[in-house]
């Protein structure tokens, strides 16, 4: 076996996403002259930030072989809880956000417990969670779209700038880097991958699969909470239907980034690129004056395509030849 060639191929495969991203940018800038303007790109950045923050935690659910469909509702609820704590209860914003985060962790913990200890499929548990979290959000906010005017410290999270760059970017970069380190360089990351790859083998090697999975759902819900706080601060608004379909965007970003939904592999960097792509695609649809209805449509198609490209095994010939051209050595 020629190892250098294999390594070169691997590098090409790793960079494949970048090529696709650049291609996407090129196409969009040709189609719309407004695309490559600073104003537009910073617009894209907002949505990329929210999706990217969500992805940083969400990714652990598919890595351990599960899924978390409750991230969108969780984010919306987080904004509402934070607002209630700060502006109705009157707690200073820092402890209020800490309490909000604790709520998110608790929800994730419940998702984890029900999936692992009761053997209920993760997508059912988290879909149910999505539903009741939405209900709680509606109940607490009375279905209103609440405008958040204070406190200043809280609003600074979304609209403030540091060294000329918006604060949400720092937050996203921070959580993405943290998540990358967690996945690649910590004991938990190793355990998560092992559980997703072969639960029995992991168990025999001394890993506790249930505890690892519960932790994955806690991380997912926590990241969604952070995203919700940033979103509420950015838009100065808390509304139960905010981020309603975000779980689909997050799944798209992660799947496009090469994470397998079957568990055992995942890439935070890939998910970030995926998030940028999702942002570009949505932005492109807007720029091209496509109706908003194209958003879920395109997302659905992209998910299916990405899954087919990620998956080995039975494939129609045209996809196989496409994979070959894209430089994927396959298995």
């Amino acid at each position: 076996m020629n190892l250098t060639a294999a390594k070169a191929r691997q590098l090409l495969k790793d960079l494949r996403l970048f090529f696709v991203l650049i291609l996407l940018m090129a196409v969009l800038s040709v189609l719309s002259p407004r695309f490559l303007t600073l104003g537009n790109l910073s617009n894209v950045l907002w949505s990329v930030c929210i999706i990217g923050i969500m992805c940083s935690g969400f990714i652990y659910a598919p890595i351990t072989g599960g899924i978390d469909l409750s991230v969108g509702s969780m984010a919306a609820l987080a904004g509402i809880i934070a607002n209630v704590l700060m502006n109705q209860v009157g707690i200073p914003w820092v402890p209020a956000l800490v309490i909000t985060l604790a709520c998110g962790m608790f929800i994730g913990f419940i998702n984890g417990i029900v999936t692992t200890k009761f053997g209920v499929p993760a997508f059912i548990v988290t879909m149910a969670a999505k539903t009741y979290l939405f209900g709680i959000a509606m109940l607490v906010s009375n279905g209103d779209m609440i405008t958040i005017m204070k406190p200043k410290g809280f609003l600074a999270i979304g609209v403030g700038k540091l060294f000329g760059l918006p604060i949400p970017i720092y937050i996203m970069v921070a959580v993405i880097v943290a998540s990358h380190i967690l996945l690649k360089h910590t004991v938990f990351g190793r355990k998560a991958i092992a559980v997703g790859a072969n639960e029995v083998a992991a168990k025999l090697s001394g890993v506790d699969p249930d505890r690892t999975r519960i932790m994955a759902y806690v991380l997912s819900a926590t990241a969604a909470t952070v995203a919700g706080i940033v979103m509420a601060s950015l838009t100065q608004q808390a509304y139960a239907a905010n981020a309603g379909g975000y779980e689909l965007d997050v799944i798209t970003a992660v799947v496009v980034g090469g994470t397998s939904l079957m568990g055992g592999s995942g890439s935070v960097a890939g998910a970030l690129i995926g998030a940028v792509m999702v942002g570009f695609i949505n932005n492109g649809l807007n720029l091209l004056n496509m109706p908003s209805s194209f958003h879920p449509l395109v997302t659905g198609v992209v998910i299916l395509l990405a899954l087919l490209l990620n998956q080995g095994g039975k494939m129609p010939k045209f996809i196989l030849s496409m994979r070959k051209r894209l430089g994927d050595p396959g298995k």
Binding site: R190, I193, N198, V200, A201, A202, S265
Partner: peptide, 17 residues
């Protein structure tokens, strides 16, 4: 079924224990 984690590198398989 029980021994290896097939999709993961030799390093990963050895590291986990």
């Amino acid at each position: 079924l029980q021994g290896i984690m097939g999709g993961i590198s030799i390093t990963g398989n050895i590291g986990i224990t």
